[in-house]
Nucleic acid binder design. Structure first.
Length: 272
DNA sequence: AGTACGCCCTGGCCGC
DNA sequence: TGCGGCCAGGGCGTAC
């Protein structure tokens, strides 16, 4: 499931391929992809002839800046952006829902088995308002004070970390991994965290995300980079999908519970 | 305000 | 071997 590190890995790989190039032809095959705004035809029409000025990331969203408008792509659970050097090498299958053909060759495809992802156009000046996500955890503005404000909530800390309006880009993997490294139980009420715990949690979120980006993301189910290669961070997971195995710190069996209806993994000894 | 639950969607896995 | 049933899960809408 692509979260911030996976989206950032794809973004960095795609920047040298697509930025500065123009879209010659666009085809979108699956109406569900554009359900948020427009139709496959209207989105495709809005892409043709546009040059990509920049490829940015906001939380788990890609923003292809086309000038007046921006193409927003969200991968959902199983979305993949793949890059093909030329039309001849481009491979689609029944799960490939969109093709962007570039001037001077090169094809960007969108593949998504479960079709939870989406693809839509927004005026560039309205992107921030349209996405409605919280601060970027890797930016300086994500201070302990900012996290303290985010945590002024009676909800469980795991739920708060997953709320994209509060913090951008964390999903189930990195929420669990950050809470483990901060030694905080996912069921704790966010507002109960001490100043020391908030400091530890901020540091753990940033550490885990940065480490995952260095390893090019976690390939738990479907994540692949634009060349089809998996990321290398999954073996570094301490708790996510490690239930039943001994904690790397204390040896206690990692447990799996439900928090806010999500599978949640933690060490009952290390995390309090 | 916080939480539960259903929905979307499909491949993979389990039990019979 | 085959098939029905269940599960995962990000985000959203609805109900309590």
């Amino acid at each position: 499931m692509p979260e911030l590190p996976e989206v950032e890995t794809i973004r960095r790989d795609l920047v040298p391929k697509v930025v500065g190039r123009s879209i010659r032809q666009a085809s979108i095959l699956t109406p569900r992809l554009t359900r948020r705004a427009g139709t496959p035809a209207s989105v495709a029409a809005g892409l043709i002839g546009r040059r990509i000025r920049a490829l940015l990331r906001r939380g788990k969203f890609f923003q292809f800046d086309l000038g007046e408008t921006s193409l927003i792509v969200r991968l959902g659970m199983t979305g993949q952006l793949r890059w093909w050097r030329d039309r001849e090498s481009c491979q689609g299958d029944e799960h490939t829902h969109a093709f962007l053909h570039f001037d001077e060759g090169g094809v960007l495809t969108y593949r998504d088995v479960r079709k939870f992802g989406e693809l839509f156009l927004v005026p560039t000046e309205a992107v921030e308002a349209a996405l409605r996500v919280g601060p970027e955890p890797l930016e300086d503005a994500f201070s302990v004070g900012a996290l303290r404000r985010i945590c002024q909530s009676g909800a469980r800390v795991k739920s708060v970390l997953l709320d994209q309006r509060k913090i951008a880009g964390l999903g189930n993997i990195y929420a669990d991994e950050a809470l483990f490294r901060a030694k905080i139980r996912p069921t704790r009420r966010a507002a109960s965290l001490s100043e020391e715990e908030l400091r530890a949690l901020r540091g753990a979120i940033r550490f885990v995300l940065a480490a995952a980006i260095r390893q090019r993301g976690s390939s738990i189910s479907d994540f692949r980079d634009p060349c089809g290669e998996p990321g290398g961070f999954a073996p570094r997971h301490r708790v996510y999908q490690c239930h039943g195995t001994p904690c790397r710190v204390c040896g206690t069996a990692i447990r799996r519970i439900l928090v806010a209806q999500r599978g949640t993994h933690f060490c009952p000894t290390c995390q309090r």
